[in-house]
Amino acid sequence: MKIACIGDSLTEGKPGVSFFNMLKRKYPDIKFVNLGKGGETVKSLHTRLSKNKLDQDYDLAFLWIGVNDIYSKLLKVQAQPITRNSEEFREIYEQVLELVSQSSKEVVAVSPAVIGENINSSNRGLLNLSMIIKEISKEHKNITFIDLHQAFTEQLETLHTSDYLSTGLGRLVKDVFFYRNPKRVDRLAAERGLHLTIDGVHLNSRGANIVVEKYSRIIEGLQPNN
């Protein structure tokens, strides 16, 4: 089986804990391809996939994109273009989904998870994007939807959460270079009062495990002996 994981820094695996590496260790006989790129928005991903065609032999592709269409508005530097509104996000997302669908037998559309571990206006924006992705997924037979936004918020509703959210580029760069070991990531997350992320967006071990659990259900459902 050959599986593509397509998305932004959350898929790329830095900063924070890489769910992708966890999947590779869990399923050593499956070929995983990491197509995550830091800072990616739905617009920039569309440009990348249009210029660099995907392999045509994927059995499964996970498409996890959208958080930077909200998160980058909070950053001091916007490296990639973002969609202007919900209508444009829907239009570009559908085009991205079509490109991915041409390259994989099965596609999983994954909603953005969280921006900050408190329920705030940014997370309400992510909820809107999640609803759009869910609606689009229902319109296609070979598309499965994973609602990571709901999975993360349900966990956080039972916890005392911190307001910490990293919005400085310098801080993000430091986290990338100095916090690569999962134990160090988890220690920093705890110091910041965070439960599922290292900085309000990128994953710590607990957050990465949620992603692995959701992805694993899909993977195991497609394996020949299931």
Rank of each mutant, 00 (worst) to 15 (best):
Met1Cys: 03
Met1Phe: 01
Ala4Leu: 10
Ser9Cys: 11
Leu10Ile: 14
Lys14Cys: 15
Pro15Met: 14
Val17Asp: 13
Phe19Ala: 12
Met22Ile: 12
Tyr27Gln: 09
Asp29Met: 14
Ile30Asp: 02
Ile30Arg: 06
Val33Tyr: 02
Asn34Val: 14
Leu35Pro: 06
Lys37Gln: 08
Gly38Val: 10
Val42Trp: 00
Thr47His: 03
Arg48Val: 10
Ser50Arg: 15
Lys51Pro: 04
Asn52Val: 12
Tyr58Val: 13
Asp59Gln: 03
Asp59Ser: 07
Ala61Tyr: 06
Ile70Gln: 02
Ser72His: 03
Ser72Phe: 02
Arg84Ser: 02
Glu88Tyr: 01
Phe89Met: 03
Gln95His: 06
Val100Leu: 08
Val100His: 05
Ser101Asn: 09
Gln102Glu: 08
Ala109Glu: 01
Val110Gly: 00
Pro112Lys: 07
Val114Ile: 09
Ile119Phe: 02
Ile119Val: 05
Ser121Met: 14
Ser122His: 05
Ser122Asn: 04
Leu126Thr: 06
Leu127Tyr: 04
Leu127Ser: 06
Met131Glu: 10
Ile136Arg: 04
Glu139His: 04
Asn142Ser: 07
Ile143Phe: 00
Ile143Met: 03
Ile146Asp: 00
Asp147Val: 15
Asp147Cys: 07
Leu148Lys: 12
Gln150Ala: 11
Thr153Asn: 08
Glu154Tyr: 03
Thr158Trp: 04
Asp163Phe: 01
Tyr164Val: 13
Tyr164His: 13
Gly168Trp: 12
Leu169Phe: 04
Arg171Ala: 12
Asp175Arg: 12
Asp186Gln: 15
Asp186Pro: 14
Arg187Ser: 14
Arg192Phe: 05
Arg192Met: 12
Asp199Ala: 11
Arg206Leu: 09
Ala208Leu: 12
Val212Gln: 11
Lys214Ala: 12
Tyr215Phe: 11
Arg217Ala: 09
Gly221Val: 11
